[in-house]
Design a protein around this nucleic acid. Structure first.
Lengths: 200, 200
DNA sequence: CGTAAGATAGTAATAATTTACTTACTTTTG
DNA sequence: CAAAAGTAAGTAAATTATTACTATCTTACG
């Protein structure tokens, strides 16, 4: 912990890089983040990054992986606290909202990668994240059906997709007005409508 | 209509440029579309573009304006065919779905511009589009309330935002699997849930 | 009606930046 | 002192925009 040095262990430097990129994505178009931007914000020269990552795409990949892991673990944790399937879905929804308000750069990175047409590794990770998220929700909705809490004729796949879309919509609108607080106000209102849509 | 010439009137060339960009956005990350890409696809040299647009940003601006105009006019047209507020909302929803399946590059361009942090003119246009879209929906939902078709306690602003988010979600998922047809299959299912959520 | 003049729309080449990545060398650390 | 982590400088490719010139179209007039 010497004060006047930039020297870090490789693992710490990689973790710091991921943090910096997520932070940068909150204040800049993710596709416009250059290696120079990252290095400058970290207080290191641009070339130093390539001591720890072979390519820029490897950096992006690490960032997306970090987001996927963090988001899924938060969701899993939120799910454990509740019992009724609908309460679990609600807990997941608000955990997701809290996550993106804590890391506004995270959804921006995800969107940016999902926009890419060609199948890159980062896009693959993002796709897998959304898929496992959706399956988790479908499972909960099916449980809700058997308990008579969810409409029997509900298309659970569509309902899972709708919840994820809802969050995307909220994020997008909060990005527009550049106000994360707005999301916390709007989220409960939107979820109330969703609940009406799926409940028996 | 001479066969062996590229010469076009300025207005036609500008319109052609917009078309090309929308087409390119369907097959490439919008933020990676270069002026060289555009020129090449149009069969013209790169420099020629700057005879008709002062900057690249002016091209993007024209594209976003085209999308906003086209989408709003489609929505307005769809709205006129129906009478009941909920039927109008449904018609608007499916008109929007048809629009994006016809021009898959359009939502990609919009997302891409909305991602930008700093307030550019294109982002301004996109924001205005979403706002006027949302207001139109809120108006319809209020009408639905007075006619007793829509739940009296519905938050119409949240409900309008939800519908737009739904479409964003559908678009994103169809982009993921690179299959526009999927959207046509999923859209009615998702709308059914939404209808349950707002109806009295 | 045909054509020269002038306006318009193009080309080819290039400048000025910016980008991801490399290389040769230096500093710090265990 | 050796390995790890950094710097400084540079390269090749790509990007937007400009410049000097050329081909094509339009139109007014002899």
């Amino acid at each position: 912990m010497s004060p006047h040095t930039n020297y870090m262990k490789a693992e710490d430097r990689r973790a710091a890089t991921v943090d910096i990129v997520v932070a940068l994505a909150a204040e800049k178009n993710p596709s416009e983040i250059s290696t120079t931007d990252i290095a400058k914000k970290m207080g290191v020269t641009q070339g130093a990054l390539f001591k720890h990552f072979p390519t820029k795409d490897a950096i992006v990949q690490a960032v997306i992986q970090w987001i996927a892991d963090k988001l899924l673990s938060r969701i899993e944790r939120a799910a454990q606290a509740e019992t009724s399937p609908i309460a679990v879905i609600e807990a997941i929804f608000f955990a997701h909202i809290r996550f993106v308000s804590e890391y506004p750069g995270a959804p921006r990175m995800l969107f940016s990668e999902l926009q890419r047409k060609q199948a890159s590794v980062p896009k693959q990770i993002a796709t897998t994240l959304l898929k496992s998220y959706s399956l988790r929700l479908q499972q909960l909705l099916e449980n809700g059906k058997t308990q008579g809490l969810v409409r029997a004729d509900l298309d659970t796949k569509a309902a899972a997709g709708l919840l994820i879309g809802m969050i995307q919509g909220l994020v997008m609108q909060s990005l527009l007005v550049d106000n994360i607080k707005l999301m916390h106000i709007e989220a409960p209102k939107v979820f109330a409508i969703y609940r009406h849509g799926i409940e028996a």
